[in-house]
Structures are given as C-alpha cells and as structure tokens.
Amino acid sequence: MTIRLGGILFGLAITGVLLLWSLLPGALNFAFPTKPDYYAFQEKNIAPEGGFSFDGPLGKWDTQQLQRGYQVYKEVCSACHSLKFVAFRNLQEIGFTEPEVRAEAASWEVPGIDPKDGSAIKRPGIPTDQFPSPYANEVEARAFNNNALPPDLTLITKARKDGVHYVYSLMQGYNEPDPEDVAKSPDFETPPGLYFNEYFYNINIAMPPQLLDGIVTYSDGTEATTEQMAQDITAFLTWAGEPSLIKRKQTGWFVIGFLLFATFLGFMSYKTVWATKKPKKGSPDLV
C-alpha cells in the first residue's frame, strides 16, 4: 500500500514537473516557432538510369567499371583524398592480374625509409602497401585546401546517409544558386572559395567541381562524360567501402534458403508433436 501511494505521488510529481516547467514553455515555443530560414538542400539523391550493377540482392560487380573508377580515383581524387584502408593487393579483386597489380603499386610513391641511413624517403609501392595519403597530416591537408579537410574516401559510401547515391549526386550537383533566392537574402550567395552544390548538406562545398568532361582518358575507350565518371567513381568507392558486398549477398541467398527449409521441417515436426494435444475444441480424442 505504501508503495502504491508513494508511486502515485512520485508519478504525479514527475508529470507535474513536465507539465509546468517543460511542457508549457515548449508548447509556447511550438505555437510561435522561431525557426530560422534555411536554404533547402536536395535531400533526395539521384540514381543513374537503370541503377548500379551491384544494386539489389542479385547485384554483381562490373569489373570494367571498377577499373575505370580506379582510374578516376588515381588521376583525379587522389590528389587530395586518401584511401587508407585499401591496399594495392586488393586491386586483384577488381580484375587486375598479379603483375598488373605490381606495376600499379610501383606507380605510386609511398613513404619508406632509406635502408642505408634510416631517413624518411618516398619509394615505389609494393602490393602489400596501403594507398598513401596525399598529405602528411591534418594540418597540412587543411593548409592546402583553404582550411577544409578532404575526408578519407575508403568508407565514404557507408559514412553518409544513402551514401552510394549521395556520392553519385554530389559529383553532378555543381550549379548556381537560384537568383531569386539570392535576391531575397545575401546569405544565399556563394562565399568566395566555396562552390554551390545542392546535394551538400550546407549547400556550399569547399571542393571545386572535379569531373569535368574528358578530364580522364579511359583506356577502354569509354567516353569520359561527367555522368559516366560519376557512375564509375561511385562504383569504385562502393567496392572500396565494402569489398565483401557481393560475396555477402550471395552467401545470404544460400543461408536464408537453408534456414527457411529447416524452419519448414521444424514446423512440420512441431505440428506432429502437438497433433494429439491441439485438435479442434470438443474433439473426443483430446488428452
């Protein structure tokens, strides 16, 4: 009885506090909102026509596309963005042969030491090396980039909401702000050193547009349009973020199929076990 009385009193007290000291000011705030006006950025990302080859439960990597994406990363993105959790040896997974991987690795400069005196030098990469970072540290990265920090790209497609489509959209989202909006408020003007991109969360991004038509020359002859390069780099970064993606989905089909089969057998076994205990009500053979 004391517990119930105490409980009722405590409950009423908590409710009272909420009502008087939180809810009332909150309700006032709700009734007269003072929300600032933001430029609405494009929350809905776009997807390529027909989707990506790895989309859906039956998706597959398109190794040609991944290799094109690698070329875009190497020739464009890697000037500022690292890919630190991927090793050159991983390139074999996207269709490079072992000698090709060795040659690819050797075309990158990675930090090493001089075997004679131990001083820091740059040496050609070997397959077991990770992709090198373009900057020694965060301070250097910011100093070179107008105080913005180019993020590591390994996990970028997982580290953003709807990341795959986000990367694809951002690559093509460079534009000009609506002149009407700019006329309304000077806040909508793009500040110097920044670029208008409606898929970036605060509209003005520090990265200049990169994938200009023809900035790379694809070795397989594909025409390097902005859209094509955006698709290819997105595919490559999706692979870099989750190399096990396709293997995972394929394993999943097998595991779920097996589990459903086992569940079916288990259900039949369960029905048989309970047969005498659960016939229709009023049936004479109940025990």
């Binding site: 589990l259 459903l260 086992a262 569940t263 288990g266 259900f267 076994s269 369960y270 076990v273 309970w274």
Partner: peptide
C-alpha cells in the same frame, strides 16, 4: 519443437 521452428523463423 515449438521453440525450435520459431527460432528458425
């Protein structure tokens, strides 16, 4: 038996 098949599900 009942827990078994439900676990499968």
């Amino acid at each position: 038996a009942k827990d078994g098949w439900f676990l499968g599900l």
